[in-house]
Amino acid sequence: MAVDPHKHCPICGTPIPLNELVCSPDCQKVWDARLNQQKRSRLILYVVIIIFLVIWAVMTFVK
C-alpha cells in the first residue's frame, strides 16, 4: 500500500504532483500575495537597519 510521490499545496494542504507549486489559481493568488508581503517586509527591515546604521555613524563620528 504505497503512496505515489507527491507533495502538498502550501496554502490548503491538498495533495499535488511534485512539479506543481500550488493546486489552483485561487491558491496561486494567495501564494503571490504572501510573497509580495514577504518582499515588502524584508525591504522595510533593510531600510530600518540602514537608518539605524546612519544614525549610529552620525552620532559616533560627528561630535
Rank of each mutant, 00 (worst) to 15 (best):
P10S: 09
S24P: 00
L45H: 15
C27L: 02
V62D: 10
N36H: 10
L35I: 07
Q28M: 11
P15L: 03
F61N: 11
C23S: 01
R34H: 10
T14E: 12
H8Q: 11
Y46S: 12
V58M: 13
C12R: 04
I50N: 04
H6A: 09
R40K: 14
I51S: 08
N19Q: 10
F61L: 12
V58D: 04
S24V: 01
C12W: 02
A33I: 09
C23Q: 02
V48K: 15
I11C: 02
D26F: 05
F61T: 08
V3W: 04
Q37V: 10
C12E: 07
M59I: 11
A33L: 10
A57E: 04
V58E: 06
T14G: 02
V62H: 13
L43D: 10
I49Q: 15
L18V: 02
A57D: 07
V62S: 13
C23L: 02
V54W: 04
D32T: 06
Y46V: 03
W31R: 04
L35E: 14
R42S: 09
V48H: 14
T14R: 06
V54K: 04
L45S: 12
E20P: 00
M1Y: 06
Q37F: 04
F52S: 07
L53D: 05
A57C: 12
W56K: 06
P15I: 01
N36L: 13
W56V: 06
P5S: 12
K63D: 13
I11L: 03
S41Y: 10
L35M: 14
Q38P: 00
P10T: 03
L18K: 02
P5N: 14
M1P: 05
M1T: 03
V48A: 15
K29D: 08
L43W: 05
D26E: 15
K63H: 13
T14C: 02
C27V: 01
D26T: 07
L43G: 06
L18D: 09
S41E: 15
P25T: 02
F52I: 06
V58G: 03
Q37I: 04
N36C: 11
D4C: 08
K39Y: 08
P17D: 04
W56N: 07
Q38A: 10
G13M: 03
F52K: 06
C27S: 05
K29T: 07
H8I: 05
V48Q: 13
S41K: 14
C23P: 00
Y46N: 12
D4M: 09
I51Q: 05
E20A: 06
I11E: 01
